[in-house]
């Protein structure tokens, strides 16, 4: 239960960090970025990860900002999850993220865990990747070839996998601020509070009167990566949020799902849960949309 030996670097600029990521270690092996350490350090201790070099990005200045400008909310990759949870700017501009974060682990985990770390780790059961996909967030990455922006739909590529190249650091996440009349909810079921969810649902809806004008739904825990429920979204737009519409949305989403069975839940149970949680999340999001109109 002790990490294997590695080389440790703590760069103080993005350029320096990228160089350390790009340069192969002398004796071979992986290079890993260390952010909040709440996923990486357990992997090191269990020796599921044995990188040759660790690049600790915590001493790089400028990655901890939260700002909203021109209708876009930008979070630096090193913003601690707890800081975002308590941020008035996040609560106003991105209520879905504010609703999702309290589901992550426990306070002491969120005090250290970062927004960027969770998204880069890309656990299919995690909340923030699901939120990013739901909102079509943009991930800003810096690498040897400079800066680029990756849309969420292209970012999550599979089991714990992302579009980030080995020499790239995720530096910021951007989402569009919500329009008036929008409500959001994150609903999930975990065996114990703080555990990774068996299934989670992110939902955001915009209402005009009682009619849904925009719907966004994404699910965690039902595939190797978070999944967008486009057919369920289409089943909601133009309708009022009543039992019939909720059923249509839940059915549309679950028809295409092929979740895996594991120790925590069977495939059939996950599918059932997805339907229940979609109804709950959309209903709660719609209630909040009415309150915010």
């Amino acid at each position: 239960m002790k990490p294997a030996a590695f080389d440790y670097q703590s760069p103080t600029s993005i350029a320096e960090a990228v160089q350390m990521l790009a340069e192969p270690p002398e004796d071979g092996g992986d290079v890993k970025v260390l952010a909040g350490g709440q996923s990486l350090v357990p992997l090191l201790s269990l020796r599921l990860a044995t990188p040759a070099r660790i690049v600790d990005i915590n001493r790089i200045p400028g990655l901890t900002g939260i700002s909203e400008e021109g209708g876009v909310l930008t979070l630096g990759a090193l913003v601690r999850q707890r800081t975002a949870e308590h941020s008035d700017v996040v609560a106003r501009a991105c209520p879905l993220m504010a609703a999702a974060i309290p589901h992550i682990g426990h306070t002491a985990i969120r005090n250290r865990g970062t927004i960027g770390g969770s998204i880069a780790h890309a656990d299919s059961a995690a909340e923030l990747p699901t939120v990013a996909l739901c909102l079509d967030a943009e991930m800003v990455a810096h690498g040897s070839n400079g800066e680029r922006t990756i849309p969420a739909a292209e970012f999550f590529t599979g089991f714990f996998s992302t579009a980030l190249a080995e020499d790239e650091i995720l530096t910021a996440v951007r989402v569009r601020s919500v329009a008036p009349g929008t409500g959001a909810a994150y609903e999930e079921l975990a065996r114990r509070h703080g555990d990774f969810a068996m299934v989670g649902v992110a939902a955001q809806v915009r209402l005009d009167g009682d009619t849904v004008t925009e719907a966004r739904i994404a699910l965690s825990g039902v595939d190797a990566q978070p999944v967008r429920a486009s057919k369920a979204e289409a089943a909601l737009v133009g309708h009022t949020v009543d039992e019939q519409t909720l059923s249509a949305a839940a059915d549309a989403a679950t028809a295409d799902l092929h979740p895996a069975s594991d120790l925590h839940a069977s495939a059939a149970y996950r599918k059932h849960l997805a339907g229940v949680l979609i109804r709950r999340a959309v209903r709660n999001a719609a209630t909040r949309a009415k309150e915010s109109a």
């Binding site: 260390l34 350490g37 709440q38 350090v41 915590n58 002491a108 985990i109 005090n111 250290r112």
Partner: peptide
């Protein structure tokens, strides 16, 4: 292993001493 680091609770097993 919970301790307070710079004013907030944290797991001391999930941080390296160098950090």
């Amino acid at each position: 292993c919970t301790v307070i680091i710079d004013g907030v609770t944290a797991r001391s097993c999930l941080q390296l001493a160098v950090q």
